[in-house]
Amino acid sequence: MKNIGLYFGTFNPIHIGHLIIANHLVENSDLDEIWMVVTPHNPFKKKSSLLDNHHRLEMVYLATQEYDKIKPSDIEFKLPQPNYTINTLAHVSEKYPEYNFSLIMGEDNLKSLHKWKNYEAILEDYNIYVYPRISEGVIETQFDKHLKIHRVNAPIVEISSTMIRNSIKLGKSVLPLLSNNVWKYIDEMNFYKK
């Protein structure tokens, strides 16, 4: 049975930090593939700042086309909004019974997992791979000893999509932070300049 890691994000835009983490996980864990799940609307983020779904999906496609084990995914586009992770996990598990799904998250998200809808069901049925983030000391959570939580010693990448959008708006070069195809797409479409 193939092990698929679901890496959720608005990817507004996808940047090299996302790719570094996804590639590290797929090459250094028992995950066979990573699906970059483009989130149409995160309940914790303002929708007005997001590019349209199809533009963000196109950027994920452009960023991942050279990686055999990293795939773009629009699985949440047809689900009711705002969507919750537990609903997506249930949906993909039913739609693809031949795959074993796991969740990928930063340790900052693990800290707030107890606030997620039906987090107990997620922990009961799915493995969670947690990558490190820079923080004030080690982030300890109530889930640290949980058998389904797997901390991965991935590189710490402190690049944010917000920083990239703000830099583009100010006319600064962000070329090293994006794959070339993504940068060309953003530039041609005039994204984030206002």
Rank of each mutant, 00 (worst) to 15 (best):
E124L: 04
S29N: 08
M36S: 06
K115M: 14
D52H: 15
E188P: 04
Y61D: 06
M189K: 12
G137S: 11
K69Y: 11
I4K: 11
D68L: 07
K169P: 01
A90G: 07
L57H: 10
E158I: 11
N23A: 11
S49W: 10
L6M: 00
Y129A: 05
N83P: 02
S73D: 06
P97N: 00
I156M: 07
T64N: 01
I134R: 14
I14A: 02
I186F: 03
H18F: 01
V38Y: 09
S160T: 12
Y192P: 13
E94P: 07
L170T: 13
K45V: 08
P80I: 07
N166M: 09
K145T: 15
D125P: 10
S48K: 15
M163S: 14
K71I: 08
E58L: 06
A22I: 12
D187F: 03
N166W: 04
I14R: 05
N190S: 10
P43N: 07
L175G: 05
L51H: 02
Y126M: 07
S29R: 14
R56D: 00
F77M: 09
S160W: 03
M105D: 09
K47R: 15
S179I: 03
Q81S: 04
S49E: 15
R56N: 01
E27F: 09
S160A: 05
K47H: 12
K184H: 13
I14G: 07
V130K: 09
A63M: 02
I159W: 00
E94S: 10
Y84G: 01
W116I: 05
Y61Q: 15
I70M: 13
P40V: 05
V157G: 00
D144R: 11
V182E: 02
S161W: 00
L178R: 02
E33L: 10
N153T: 12
W35Y: 15
V182D: 00
K172T: 03
F11L: 03
N87C: 12
N28M: 08
Q81D: 03
F8G: 13
S173G: 10
H41A: 08
S179M: 09
E66Y: 03
L110W: 01
P82L: 01
I168M: 15
H91V: 00
Q81T: 04
P82N: 13
V37C: 15
Y61C: 13
Q65C: 07
N83I: 08
K148M: 03
E120F: 06
H150L: 07
T10V: 12
V38D: 00
P80F: 07
S102H: 03
L79F: 11
E58A: 05
A63D: 04
S161D: 00
E76D: 09
E107L: 02
I168G: 14
Y84T: 04
L57M: 12
E120Q: 14
P155T: 10
M163G: 15
Q65Y: 06
K45P: 01
V130L: 11
G9Q: 08
K115L: 08
H54F: 09
R133M: 03
P155V: 12
V60H: 08
H18L: 00
S29E: 15
T10L: 05
S135K: 00
K45W: 06
Y131N: 08
H91F: 11
L89G: 03
T162R: 11
P155A: 04
S48G: 13
A154W: 06
E120Y: 08
W183Y: 06
T162S: 15
G5S: 07
I149L: 01
I20E: 10
M189W: 01
K78C: 04
S29I: 12
D30R: 13
S73Y: 02
Y185R: 04
N87L: 03
